[in-house]
Design a protein around this nucleic acid. Sequence first.
DNA 1: AAACTTTGAGCAATGGTTTTCTTGCCGGTA
DNA 2: TACCGGCAAGAAAACCATTGCTCAAAGTTT
Lengths: 339, 339
Amino acid sequence: MTETDRRPPPGRVTLTDVATLAGVSVGTASKALSGNGRMRPETRDRVLEAARRLDFQPNEQARALLAGRTWTVGLVTTDGIGRFSTPVLLGAEDALGAGKISVLLCDTRGDAIRERHYVETLLARRVDGIIVTGRRTDPRPPLAGLRDVPTVYALSPSEDPADMSVASDDEGGARLATEHLITSGRRHIAHVSGPAHHAAAQHRARLTHDLLGQAGLELSGGKVHFGDWSEAWGRRAARTVLRAAPDTDAFFCANDQIARGVTDTLREEGRRVPDDIAVIGYDNWDVMALAARPPLTTVDMNLNEIGRIAALRLLDAIDGRTVGGVRTVACRLVVRESA
Amino acid sequence: MTETDRRPPPGRVTLTDVATLAGVSVGTASKALSGNGRMRPETRDRVLEAARRLDFQPNEQARALLAGRTWTVGLVTTDGIGRFSTPVLLGAEDALGAGKISVLLCDTRGDAIRERHYVETLLARRVDGIIVTGRRTDPRPPLAGLRDVPTVYALSPSEDPADMSVASDDEGGARLATEHLITSGRRHIAHVSGPAHHAAAQHRARLTHDLLGQAGLELSGGKVHFGDWSEAWGRRAARTVLRAAPDTDAFFCANDQIARGVTDTLREEGRRVPDDIAVIGYDNWDVMALAARPPLTTVDMNLNEIGRIAALRLLDAIDGRTVGGVRTVACRLVVRESA
DNA sequence: AAACTTTGAGCAATGGTTTTCTTGCCGGTA
DNA sequence: TACCGGCAAGAAAACCATTGCTCAAAGTTT
């Protein structure tokens, strides 16, 4: 029997193995490793050496069972882990990882049945908390079936105002863009947006309209151009606006894809950006904003920050400091060449 | 004392609570719920009713501790959960979710220290297995420090051929594109690619070159145009090729961004796509491929399938059926309007 | 030298579930 | 009536780490 033979064949090394090798009881071994109990330095060293030799790692399962905490949070996303939820997710993971908390990923693909199923799984696994995130900024119904598990909604706030939510300051973002255009001397500003029933489109449109009004200006073309979030719509809208209001000198687009479509059309129509017409996008989606000609000035929602703050609020809630309500995160204008 | 008072205030309902309410022992309650033991139907019903009343859910932690399995796998990604790893991840999650397995997400951001840290975390949590995925298709060094945890490398194969890897059939993808162009009558085919040191660029270039040779053709412009993966490079390369070889009638681009840059330039130069010049991309990245004018014919790597197969191999390995080596997943040509 | 303090280390309970082993009871057969 | 088979249900061990408590020995004080 060599020493390695005492290692259990399939399973991992357990504290009992360490204690046996060091010639002490499990209790003593535990205290030696955690540094909690008092003991002769010599004993401690023997345990530490044994743990090192066996490459011991405490079983989180057992620890969690005892502590009643799993140091795990569930991250429920509804949009297939897309462009919006990914940065939120990473921001959250960053903040949580610092506190030794792991993230259990659940993608519901927008399906209520799956969502329900995932919530039950997370509950069965006794997660310490849940973060819910989605593609749209429209409020969403609160997660059904969770009992007293702390939950934070990121990006898509909960419809229940008592829940904790972290949202983007849509109106602030629109303000950044519009004021940038006004202060740089633009006077005939068009606004091209996505579907009129999206909250994001509504907020940005309302604020743009209001700010122009306060500056004594009107929307170029006389109205907000609602459509969809695509480049193709941006191209179509740009042509429409140029025909209806040829003196337009700026476009504020409610996302970068629309903005890119607009710049493409402007270039094809022989208008120089930004000399003749300025263009501002929204989202700061690098593949769009940087590949556009010229690179887009655009509003960044600080999605990472939204995720980070959601995680911090969740950590607070887990520690019992629950403060309900929506908290908004400010946007940031990234100035490039298009405006 | 009403009945609800016996429910522990902060914690969840436990099997003991159910057993007490039903007037049986925990052991019996467990058997009733799992359907394993034999008992009077009346007793079973009483337990089931109690569980229903208390909304009991077994604690996965405790179950895992006993079974020595956690029904959890770690998903280690190196590229910030980007465009490539996301579909792989979803494919894997889909296959795993069917088997009641949850996914623990670890994003290393390409940092070796973080990677090491995550591996230790996953080991401490006793995950049943690990899937490693990354952005590049180049082989990567195997994960350090894991003992006997089954591991599958998806998209980025391991440098160790004994490890289990699932990779994309890069050469097959290039073959699909090139043969499509040749059979549709193109004779002067240019190949615009990414950095020459990327495995993906090399594989695609070599196969394109070889196939053209077999058909008695040569690369238009006489060589492969290596650059980077950007639209800007696609635009530049297209101009270079048109100048050097004006009779070029097709472009095979090693990703969709390059292809989009190429089509943009071709349109600006007055060449019609696909009438005058055909363009094929790679990746089938919808926001690029669909927004291009015309929409791109492109090679789809079936990333979902890669994730799915990686998950299935991992499940096999967890059950002891480990088969090392690289398995490649075939690509698929998505024909749209550009070729 | 006796009583007391300090210290080192083990014991056992804890957490929630599963599973094996055991006990007790009933009916049936010799 | 005695014995055995079968079945229902309980008791207890197992999983693994943590921690308060206990006990014993060494060391200190009067």
